[in-house]
């Protein structure tokens, strides 16, 4: 899968590049409007990560031109502006997703996978790892084909892990992702432990060959 990263911040571009390569993608980067336009005219990509504020032009213009050509490449907008206007405009122009900076690389990878999955295999949105499949749209989780019942929070936790298999997830990050942006470092994480315990029990009982492992008391990892 070939990805074009359009990002003027070199450090961020390099980091994204490195992380995506590690995930097995083929990555190219463009640092400004001109070179991005050039690359898009010459090569075809499966997915484009598009920054809005670019030297030499606005990323949204690039998106509009792309869509005017009838190009069906997936576009994920990454912007530091984090304003609803940009998000609405971007998605209105035909972007597939919107990710506000600063973002976690794992989140980005999950979004790319999700977007790619949607365009290549319409209808099947499930995340699969081991013998577990999770369908975000219908809220169904199956272990080896048999459906198991999860509560809302348990489902959210599992979904978060399924999008980032093999990554260490800090429990504060998990808490923020599932309970919303209301968590402080000072908070105790009893509520995470409680949900985690139930989720693990349900997965084991259903005979899943994956499990959520605790890592050094700091976080978890889906293995």
């Amino acid at each position: 899968m070939k990805i074009l990263v359009i990002e003027d911040e070199e450090a961020l571009a390099e980091l994204t590049d490195k992380a995506l390569r590690k995930e097995g993608f083929i990555v190219e980067t463009a640092f400004d409007y001109g070179s991005a336009e050039e690359k898009l005219a010459v090569y075809a990509y499966d997915c484009i990560l598009l920054d809005i504020m670019l030297p030499g032009g606005n990323g949204l213009d690039l998106l509009r031109k792309l869509k005017e050509r009838g190009d069906r490449t997936n576009v994920i907008i990454t912007s530091a502006k984090d304003s609803i206007d940009d998000k609405v405009t971007g998605l209105g122009f035909g972007a597939d997703d919107y990710l506000a900076k600063p973002f976690h690389i794992a989140e980005l990878v999950a979004r790319i996978r999700s977007v790619a999955r949607r365009s290549t295999n319409r209808g099947d949105f499930a995340f699969r790892y081991g013998n577990v499949a999770l369908e975000p749209d219908s809220g169904r989780v199956t272990v080896a084909g048999r459906e198991i019942q999860l509560l809302k929070k348990e489902f959210d936790i599992l979904e978060y892990f399924m999008q980032r298999p093999g990554h260490i997830i800090d429990k504060t990050v998990l808490a923020e992702a599932v309970w919303g942006d209301h968590i402080d470092q000072a908070d105790d994480f009893q509520f995470v432990y409680a949900q985690m315990k139930n989720l693990r029990r349900k997965l084991t009982a259903a005979g899943a060959d994956i499990g959520i492992k605790s890592v050094y008391g700091f976080g978890y990892k889906l293995v």
Binding site: E9, A11, L12, L15, T16, K18, A19, K22, A80, K101, P102, F103, H104, I105, A106, G166, H167, I168, V215, Y216, F218
Partner: peptide
């Protein structure tokens, strides 16, 4: 952006399997 870069670099370091527990 620099904050995102720092966080990202740490994340990428954390996925390195050769790290010791103390380092992690």
């Amino acid at each position: 952006t620099p904050l995102a870069v720092c966080t990202g670099r740490i994340e990428s370091l954390l996925s390195d399997t050769e790290l010791t527990e103390t380092q992690t």
